[in-house]
Design a protein around this nucleic acid. Sequence first.
DNA 1: GAGTGCATCTCGCTC
DNA 2: GAGCGAGGTGCACTC
Lengths: 249, 249
Amino acid sequence: MKFISLESPSPTDCFKIIDTGIRKRALIILLACCQATYEGRARSRLGFGERMILIKPDGSFLIHQDRKLDPVNWQPPKSRSKVSMKNGVVFLESVRRIPQEHLKVELKEVHLVSYYQCQDAQELEVCGHEKDMGELIWKHPELIEKGFRPTVREYSTSKGFIDILGKDSKGQLMILELKSRKAGTNAVKQLKRYLNDFKDDKKEVRGILVAPSITEDALELLEENNLEFKSLEPPNELKNEKKITLDLF
Amino acid sequence: MKFISLESPSPTDCFKIIDTGIRKRALIILLACCQATYEGRARSRLGFGERMILIKPDGSFLIHQDRKLDPVNWQPPKSRSKVSMKNGVVFLESVRRIPQEHLKVELKEVHLVSYYQCQDAQELEVCGHEKDMGELIWKHPELIEKGFRPTVREYSTSKGFIDILGKDSKGQLMILELKSRKAGTNAVKQLKRYLNDFKDDKKEVRGILVAPSITEDALELLEENNLEFKSLEPPNELKNEKKITLDLF
DNA sequence: GAGTGCATCTCGCTC
DNA sequence: GAGCGAGGTGCACTC
C-alpha cells in the first residue's frame, strides 16, 4: 500500500502504521496531542499540546505547532526514528549520532495517522542570490561603473574572501562586497576590514558595497570611511521563464 | 466540526475543505502532487511532485518535500492564504504584504486533505544558549577563574557588543567573548577587534574566548594573538527538571 | 516598523 | 567529517 490514513486510531493501530511507514521509508504524518523532550546541542522540554508531526524518509523529524514557520522540535536528515508502545501509550524517538541528539515524543491522543510513499524528483530553481549578483557583475562590469574591469572572484585574504576584485578606468584597485539584500553596518565593517588589509601595501584602494539598498547607519559609516555604495538589484530571471507563466496561469 | 479528513477528494470537496479550514483558522494539511512558483525577496519555481502542504492558523504556509528539514517553499506568519478553483483545478495562493511576496500552488492530484482546529498553549522551554552562559558566568564568575569580577554585560563598542567585561584578581581588564558551541576563527577575530579598540587606550587588556570547545585553526590564531581560551559548557538545566523525567519515563 | 544578532539555525561547498 | 559562509534564513529584542 502506497498510502494509508486512519482517523482516531487505537494505540496498536497507530503503532503499526508508524512502524510500517518507517520501514517502508514513507512520509509519516501525525496529528496528535503530544509532549516532547530534546537533548543534544541544547536541551528543551515541551508540554502536552495538539501538534502535527512529520517524519520524512530521509530521517528528518519535525514537530509543528499551530504557529510559526519553524518546527518547535526537530531532528535533521539521517536521524534514526523509532516507534514503541508501553502500557498502551505510543512513543516516538529520533536519534542523531554526531552530534549526539535525542528527541523523545509521547503521544497522548492521536487524531490522524498516515503514511505516504511519495515521488518527488524535482529540485527547486531559485534566483536572486549573492552568487547570481557576482555572475551578473562579472558578465556586465559596466553595471558598477564605466570602465570597471573585474579581475578576481572569491579572492582569499587573511580577513576572509573578497567577493570581487578589479580595477577602475584609471587602473585603481577596487574591492567589491556584494549583498543580495539591504546592507547593514556589518557589511560595511567587513568591507572596511578587507581594505585595511590592502592598505598595508601602501596602495590606494577603493571599497564598494554593492547591494539593492543600505541602512542609514551603514551609509553613514560607509561615508565616514570614504567607502562607496552602488545600488544593484540581484538578477531576477529563471531559466525557463516563459514556460512557467504558460504552465501556471 | 473540529477535525475533518478526506482521502482522494474531488476538486470541489478539496476546495470546500480548504476554504472552510482557512475561515475556521484551522491547521490545514494536504498531501498532493503540486507545482509552485514564488516571487518576492527572490524568485523560484518548483515543478510537479508529491508533497505535503501545511497552512497554519497564523498564516504560515509550508510546502515540504520528502527530504530536508526546511520547507522547499513557504510564506511566513501573517501571510494571507486563499484557495480557488478554475476548470476543475484547485489553486492555493499565499500573499505577504511587507515585503511583497507571492506563493502560488497548483494542485494536480490530492491524496489527502484535512483540517484540524488544534489547541496548544504550550511554549517550548529551552536552555543552553549563549544568553544562558552569560547569566551563568555573571552569577558564578569563578567559573572563568579565581578572582574574576564581571562588571558590564553587553558593553557597546564601535566594533559591536562585548559579551562580558570585567577585571581579574590583579585588576587587569578582561574582555570575554561567549560562544555556546564550538568556536571558530571568526570568534577569535571578533575578540581581536574588541581588544584593538581597547588597546588604543594604552591599557593592558586580556581577551578570553569562552566556549565549550574550539577549532584547531581558531586555537592557533588565538595563541598568535596572545588571547586565551576558557572551556565552558553552556548551562544544561531546565526549570522543572525532575518533573520531566518523572512525566516521560 | 527597521535594525541587530543568536540559532538544536540548515544547507551546500571545500578541504 | 570539519570548517566556513549564505540564506526568500526565522526569530526575539531593542529602538
